[in-house]
Write a protein that binds this DNA or RNA. Structure first.
Length: 621
DNA sequence: TTAGGGTTAG
């Protein structure tokens, strides 16, 4: 009943009660209703649901509580034992307002009423949700005193409480001494270890558990994804299929997230088909993850189709899609979508604004970016986080406003991180500002001395300005700091087999043919004006050697391999661990033109889609 | 009337 009945009290259905999930009436509404029903002569018990009463119990003043108890007695006491009413309230409050559930439990104890296993279970749930370890321990003691230690259900709740409070010694003690364990017991513990990032123990438990449910598999798959081990997640998913266990919505979400991380489009597509056949696409979270998977696998158009086809969208759906357009250099689409989002009445959150600011910085939309930054604070009351500051510094410094960017960093209320200084450094490179580059690197070296990327950029700035001695000094600095260059790798997946290419390595069985094909391409590229840009090579060697190093960059090898092993006209998709270097960027533009192929490269920041000699980033990256 | 797994930024 609740709200509809409250607005039209005389139409109350005598035996219709709301479930505890529906929103309870407020105390004042309830009092109003109470008065109304008394006048109309309708018995109170037929109109007041337990969850309504529960909402009253949440009121901490003694008068309201007394009123709630009188309602209890008035409505139910002739037919139902009072403890069930307490339990119903505890149940409702443990989800809606756990601190009130704890308060109610203390009142129950104070009233000298003996709790049963249900009361304890609801109270432990409230302890979990409020991380009240000491109260949880008190309930544990009570459980032992009352002899409830044989109830698996209750002990699982207890175990869960200890896990949520990260009291793993207590959790293990409960687990070890449980007289009976069921699959839920194991799942709780496995999930906790995945949350703590201890995947080895989670896996061990998974291996030895006597019986597994879909949730056991899913918990471990999701754990691998959360711990940044998507390959293991996919492997386990395949094991799960082989074991004949049917993935459900949650499993699909976890597996799709792994595909997104890996750029594993083939499996992602298969999961999409499976989800469709099971009717999972009605589930918003499945669709959200599906959108993310398609975006991160380079298929922004398909992602948009999924998005457009959704009947219900959450802030996550909108944010994912806006961020996706931004990542693919589609700034206008991102901004248009934001307008639609506002029209639809969904309130943007801080992630939405990260996507929007990304879109602006990738497109050089200075004024819009500033506007969004102000709007998120003033119109939406959001507090900017480090990511937002990073986007703003990126936006300003790319636009050439390096002084303003620097000033912005100095005024930031949060400590700038490597992303923020890195953005200033990037701007300094584009605008050939040595002073600002040096300022940025000063902080970057302190924050992250082992990251070689920054040195490369600084050296490029020097080399650009003709300061070759300074460039050499950077190389010395790198050596002195013990900085090793992160090997660049690129992967391409063909017929479900992922081929990895590491810069300079020649491990792939088709290496000879790849080099041969590259030489042919190089000839054609040079005819079209390609000049190798060896400034990106930070090694002491002569020009010819530098060019040789350049020609063995992993994304070039992967693209050539792709050209050789995929049908003409098909899109080539590459994943790269670092950012695309400027020489490869120029080369891939030409290759897309010469071979009439679309080449989509996912680098660590964004997507580059090369087609007909141009890139979707419009060379602004 | 009680317990366990999920999505967007990086």
């Amino acid at each position: 009943m609740s709200s509809s009945a409250l607005s039209l009290p005389l139409t109350v259905q005598p035996h219709h009660r709301s479930s505890s999930a529906s929103s309870p009436a407020s105390p004042s509404q309830l009092k109003q209703l109470h008065a109304h029903l008394l006048k109309a002569g309708i018995p109170l018990s037929s109109a007041v649901s337990l969850s309504d009463v529960a909402s009253l119990c949440g009121v901490s003043d003694a008068a309201s509580f007394a009123y709630a108890r009188s309602l209890f007695r008035h409505c139910y006491s002739s037919t139902t034992p009072e403890l069930i009413l307490w339990n119903s309230c505890l149940n409702a409050l443990s989800s809606s307002s756990p601190s009130d559930a704890l308060l109610l439990f203390s009142r129950l104890r104070f009233a000298d009423i003996l709790p049963d296993t249900f009361s304890c279970s609801f109270t432990l749930k409230a302890c979990s949700r409020t991380s009240s370890l000491s109260l949880g321990k008190a309930v544990h003691a009570l459980i032992e005193k009352l002899g409830f230690q044989v109830d698996v259900f209750l002990l699982n709740t207890l175990l869960h409480m200890y896990c949520r409070c990260e009291a793993m010694i207590d959790a293990r003690r409960v687990f070890e001494t449980m007289p009976v364990r069921d699959v839920v017991t194991w799942n709780i513990l496995i999930t906790q270890y995945t949350k703590l990032g201890v995947m080895e123990i989670a896996r061990e438990l998974f291996e030895v558990m006597p019986e597994r449910s879909v949730r056991s598999w899913t918990a471990l798959i999701a754990g691998y994804v959360q711990c940044g081990q998507p390959k293991e997640a996919i492997q386990l998913f395949q094991e799960m299929e082989n074991a004949g266990c049917q993935p459900n919505e949650v499993t699909v979400v976890a597996a799709l997230a792994a595909c997104a991380d890996l750029g594993a489009l083939d499996l992602g597509e298969r999961l999409c088909k499976y989800a469709k056949s099971c009717g999972f696409l009605k589930n918003v979270r499945v669709c959200n993850t599906l959108i993310d998977m398609y975006i991160k696998c380079g298929c922004v158009d398909i992602a948009r189709n999924v998005f457009d086809g959704m009947t219900e969208r959450t802030v996550v759906s909108w944010s994912a899609m806006i961020g996706g357009h931004a990542m693919h250099g589609q700034g206008e689409e991102a901004l248009e979508l934001f307008t639609k989002m506002e029209e639809s009445g969904i309130r943007p959150n801080s992630v939405t604004f990260v996507g929007l600011l990304h879109a602006c910085s990738h497109m050089g939309l200075l004024d819009e970016g500033r506007r969004f930054f102000t709007s998120m604070i003033e119109d939406y009351g959001l507090v900017p986080e480090i990511e937002h500051y990073g986007c703003m510094v990126d936006l300003l410094s790319r636009a050439g406003l390096l002084e303003e960017a620097h000033e912005f960093i100095r005024k930031m209320p949060v400590e700038p991180n490597g992303v923020v200084w890195g953005a200033l450094l990037g701007g300094a490179r584009v605008h050939k500002d040595i002073k600002m580059g040096e300022e940025a690197i000063k902080h970057l070296v302190k924050l992250d001395p082992s990251n070689d990327g920054y040195y490369v950029v600084l050296s490029n700035i020097y080399a650009d300005a003709g300061h070759f001695d300074a460039a050499a000094q950077v190389r010395r600095l790198m050596r002195d700091q013990g900085v090793k260059k992160t090997p660049g790798w690129s992967t391409i997946t063909i017929n479900s087999v992922t081929h990895e290419f590491v810069a300079g390595e020649s491990k792939h069985p088709q290496t000879e043919e790849i080099y041969k094909k590259w030489d042919e391409l190089l000839h054609e590229m040079k005819l079209r004006g390609y000049v190798p840009d060896s400034s990106v090579v930070l090694l002491d060697m002569d020009e010819a050697e530098k060019e040789h190093v350049l020609y063995r960059h992993s994304e070039k090898l992967a693209v050539v391999f792709g050209l050789m092993n995929t049908p003409p006209g098909s899109t080539i998709r590459i994943m790269k661990n670092l950012r695309v270097c400027s020489d490869c960027h120029a080369a891939l533009k030409l290759i897309s033109e010469i071979t009439d192929r679309q080449i989509v490269v996912r680098d660590r920041n964004r997507f580059h889609s090369f087609k007909n000699g141009t890139c979707s980033c419009r060379d602004y990256w």
